[in-house]
Simulated scan of single mutants.
Amino acid sequence: MKRVSRKETTENNSKYMMRSKDRHEKVSLSLTMDLITEILTKLPPISVCKLIFVSKLWLSTIQGKFFTDLYLTRSLTRPLLIFQFYCPAKRHFCSSSPENLSHDHSITPKTIPGLQISPPVRGLICCRDNDAKLFIVGNPSTGQFLTLPRVEAWMKTASFFGYDPVNDLYKVFNMTLVKDKQGCFLSSEHQVYTLGAQNTWRMIECKCPHYPLTQGICNNGVVYYGAWSGCSGSQDKRSGVVVSLDMRSEEFSTMTLPEGVIITGQPNLVSYNGAIAFVNQSPNGRFDLWVLMDASKQEWTKISLLVPCWEDLVGKDKLCCRGTISSGELVFEPCYSPCKYFIICYDSKKNKARRVDVERSRDHCVIRTRIFVDHVESPMFLPRTV
């Protein structure tokens, strides 16, 4: 038997690697870059990320803005749902297409850092971990998460996540809530962190102190959220407003709410068919939607709906509206996690409602569940700080 030396083995491996590389290059040369790009947009994000090691050309293509935007444009036509599961020790999440909600199905969560998650923005999410006093921006599609620098002031805070389409920038906003002389909480020390920019938080000015009450929803480069404006010593006398935070100029402004809108402790600001809307809901399945049709003119449209067979579908559980999915259906989920988790999908055009029971993983002790709509898959690599 011939003994093979280590030197010969190394040379053989090198020759094999060269031949393998040549084959990849020949395959790449036989396909146009447009065709390669077309194929890549049809692959799952996690698979696309692995292909950056094929060649420098593929690396530059996949990590380029043109490919990311093209992939996102196509993903926007098939938005997903994100389920977040609160457990005593960890937080978990999973995603599902609205088509899967046509029947009962089970979902297996993955571990995700953070305690509070902002609504997804173009495939990215922002987690706020109050225990560790950190913000974490992540791409659930690729499993990449980026921990931001610590915020100097971390007391009672509110935070929002948005995207500036003009400059192609993702931003995290954080504000500290402090008590004024009348004992009311108002926003203070407003800070912003820009992904891919300098690795620091910047202070910005807010000329309209307020107290945020709802989640923030990013729509066309502006984050909207409900808040109290000013302080009159009593919660009943405070005026409810909609705060708009422009992602490009980083300026705050307020608009008045239409008569009849009540900002509750529940996150009753939702995304409704591409617009934002406030939801006021009654226990018997009746609810009113105030949809912001034109932000510049502060035009609102009221829509009153009654979900049929509400008690038969829901029972005694209290449900909250989470917005619309790609089918146009409104999605409701329990405000407090029951023993058996479920969601209600309501089609207002057909006036039909259905219940979907979701079986959660038994490996985790889930104490609460939260659903987010309008999540899209993205192959985007999070920019490293400088």
Rank of each mutant, 00 (worst) to 15 (best):
S141E: 07
D129Y: 05
P120W: 03
P120N: 07
I136L: 05
D129L: 05
K133L: 13
I112Q: 11
G114Q: 01
I125W: 02
A132N: 14
P120K: 05
P119T: 06
D129C: 09
P140Y: 11
L134N: 08
C126P: 01
G114W: 00
S118V: 03
D131A: 13
P119V: 03
R122N: 15
C127L: 14
T142R: 04
G114V: 01
I117H: 12
R128G: 09
L115S: 14
K133I: 10
I112N: 05
D131L: 15
R122H: 15
S141H: 12
R122F: 12
R128N: 12
T142C: 04
I117V: 14
T142E: 06
S141D: 08
P119R: 04
G123W: 08
L115D: 14
G138R: 08
L134T: 10
C126W: 00
D129N: 11
V121N: 03
D131K: 15
P140W: 08
F135T: 05
I125L: 12
G114T: 00
P140E: 08
D131W: 11
I112K: 13
I125C: 10
P120G: 09
R128I: 13
C126G: 01
L134I: 12
N139S: 05
I112P: 04
L134P: 03
D131C: 13
V137Y: 00
C127Q: 09
P119G: 06
P140H: 11
P120D: 05
P140M: 09
F135R: 04
P120S: 11
L124C: 02
G114K: 01
S118T: 12
I117N: 10
K133Y: 12
